[in-house]
């Protein structure tokens, strides 16, 4: 029983990370109808920036704050400087361009920081915590709290603020939004900036556990895609729930299904994606898309 509760807790903890990155993917997909395959690498780059700042002596909190600001600017700049030029191109082209970004970021990070894993410290002690006989770490508690807080902020931003309204309008109907005087280009840029920030938060939270090297986001990106597929690419809330579900599945299969363990965890994500696509292609919470002819 205790082991089960603990497994579930671990699952929720990593699921929150997957959910965050899945949310970042869905935010961009909502706005521009493309999946951003460079999302994981953008988060990796942000995490390296945070590491570099801490390494140069900045306090953790200041380093992360600067990183988030830079991520916002970077995401905005990437959309305005590059992605906007393929906005009208076929999806195939758009997706391939994000793939090019993926390669460039990955290569540049390898060039600058090399492939030896670095350790990034978390803000809280890595000590453990016992509640009602269940052992968990402060890191897991921290991840859950941070993600929930971030989701709350995003929810408020999108549902209560003027900016949020503009972003939603630009995403749903760019032409009408433009007629209503909304700067759609800026809105898309902010959308990319926000998802870069969300990715950065995920990267900074997960790096203390996994170690930091240019390829460290590959598996996280895979889980995030699995989460977004489970939740449905048209549902931001669903993406988070989907991420948590994937985290739970990963933790449960690793603990209870002997031959899977942690070594086949990525295959679990692959199988999850294929099964969801077969059984419920629009995910648990997604809206069915009807092709217009």
């Amino acid at each position: 029983m205790q082991q089960l509760v603990q497994t579930l807790l671990d699952g929720v903890g990593s699921g929150m990370i997957y959910g965050s990155l899945a949310l970042a993917l869905v935010l961009i997909h909502q706005a521009t109808r493309i999946p951003n395959f460079a999302q994981g690498e953008m988060a990796m780059l942000s995490t390296f920036v945070a590491w570099e700042l801490i390494d140069r002596g900045l306090p953790w909190i200041a380093a992360v704050a600067i990183t988030l600001a830079l991520s916002m600017a970077g995401g905005y700049g990437l959309q305005r400087g590059l992605i906007r030029w393929v906005e009208r191109s076929p999806h195939l082209t758009q997706v391939m361009v994000t793939l090019g970004v993926f390669m460039v970021i990955n290569g540049v990070a390898g060039l600058v920081w090399g492939y030896l894993p670095k350790t990034l410290d978390g803000p809280v002690s890595s000590g453990s915590l016992r509640i009602a006989g269940v052992t968990t770490s402060w890191q897991v508690v921290g991840m859950v709290l941070v993600t929930v807080g971030m989701l709350l902020l995003l929810y408020l931003l999108f549902s209560r603020s003027r900016l949020g309204l503009q972003l939603r309008a630009a995403a749903q109907n760019p032409t009408s939004a433009r007629l209503a005087g909304i700067n759609v280009g800026r809105a898309y840029g902010i959308g990319w900036g926000l998802s870069a920030v969300v990715g950065a938060v995920a990267g900074v939270m997960v790096a203390p556990q996994t170690g930091l090297e240019p390829n460290f986001m590959f598996p996280i990106l895979l889980y995030a895609f699995a989460g977004a597929t489970v939740g449905g690419f048209s549902s931001p809330g669903g993406a988070v729930v989907g991420g948590v579900l994937v985290g739970l599945v990963e933790a449960l299969t690793a603990t209870y299904v002997g031959f899977i363990g942690t070594e086949l965890s990525l295959t679990v994500a692959l199988v999850t994606i294929v099964i969801v696509l077969l059984v419920r292609p629009d995910g648990l919470f997604g809206k069915k898309e009807v092709a217009r002819v």
């Binding site: 361009v97 793939l99 090019g100 390669m103 460039v104 290569g107 540049v108 390898g110 060039l111």
Partner: peptide, 13 residues
């Protein structure tokens, strides 16, 4: 070592 990756990424874009 990472130069081919960067070049290929730039080629795509």
């Amino acid at each position: 070592q990472t130069a081919p990756g960067i070049v290929n990424g730039l080629v795509i874009i």
